[in-house]
């Protein structure tokens, strides 16, 4: 994104584009990476409900898909709250870059 100067900014610090924060990718903050294990997933959607960064992808049928690593900050709430299947978590945290 090119740098804007005061002459080109809208008056009164108004931001005209709704949800423009999506241009800023927070995924680079991550040191731990959530990994989704599909066979253990019961589609409870708790991870989606509790994600503070709206980074759990859901398709048009309302089924859970992978993670949006462009924005996921790797906090691990999803992994902790995941009930999993028969004691096996559907989300595990791994060290980034491994």
């Amino acid at each position: 994104m090119s740098k804007k100067f005061w002459e080109t900014l809208p008056q009164g610090s108004v931001v005209l584009e709704a949800g423009s924060s999506a241009k800023f990718k927070t995924g680079t903050w991550r040191s731990m990476r959530p990994k989704w294990i599909e066979e253990n997933c019961i589609q409870c959607m708790f991870c989606w409900m509790y994600c503070p960064d709206m980074s759990v992808k859901v398709n048009a049928e309302g089924k859970r898909e992978g993670f949006d690593y462009d924005y996921c900050k790797g906090c691990g709430i999803c992994a902790l709250e995941c009930p999993g299947k028969k004691g096996n978590k559907a989300i595990v945290m791994e060290e980034e870059g491994k």
Binding site: G19, S20, S21, A22, F24, K25, D70, Y71, K73, I77
Partner: peptide, 10 residues
């Protein structure tokens, strides 16, 4: 929207 800059896990 995502891309906000709250801390991880806020």
């Amino acid at each position: 929207a995502h891309g906000h800059r709250m801390c991880a896990g806020c």
